[in-house]
Amino acid sequence: MNAFRLAGDMTHLLSIILLLHKIRAMKSCAGISLRTQELYVIVFVTRYVDLSMKYYSFYNSIMKIVFLGTSISIVWYMRYHKVVKQTYNKDVDTFRHIFLILPCFVLALLINRAFTVIEVLWTFSLYLEAVAILPQLVLLQRSRNIDNLTGNYVFLLGAYRAFYLLNWIYRFFIENHQVRWIPWLSGLLQTAIYADFFYYYIKSWKNREKLKLPA
């Protein structure tokens, strides 16, 4: 474990807690894409299939359980909670996430480290995570005003993978010089997708104005 990875995990955890807090405290999920949240559940389920089989550390296991639990409960709130589900606007959250799931799955079958169930699912989860934010970013572009919590949520979500990129650089030079193209390139693409959001987020923060993404 290194400081970059810990910072990344804490940023990721904070983003999820922020979202869960918004949903529970405001009883609203306005501006949040259910499609993206469902993709994250798929990402965590397919990545943590080895949760019951392999034990790395208490930290690793507890964080996997927390990520699984929180992401599933966010989808539950948005789909089934009698008050919250009224605030979900499915007419604007129209991104067909099957167009992300299928290509990522096919790609994981073609490009992976080993053609085993665990390895293909793990690879699929990395590819899917890289593009999972797209429905949310499309939704933000359609939203006239983005509330601060949602903006902060997306910012932290993008920042976490940027910390992971630093963690991978650290691990490569300091630890074991092993090349791992799949996580590296997926993580790079994931962070790149946030680039224009980061630009507008920081601009709105500096100018103290409302966050607005160009349509």
Binding site: R5, D9, H12, D50, K54, Y56, S57, N60, M63, K64, F67, R113, A114, E119, W122, Y164, N167, N176, Q178, R180, P183
Partner: peptide, 10 residues
């Protein structure tokens, strides 16, 4: 082995 040693990440 590469893939297993890197599965310690979240």
């Amino acid at each position: 082995e590469e893939s297993s040693s890197f599965k310690d990440e979240l």
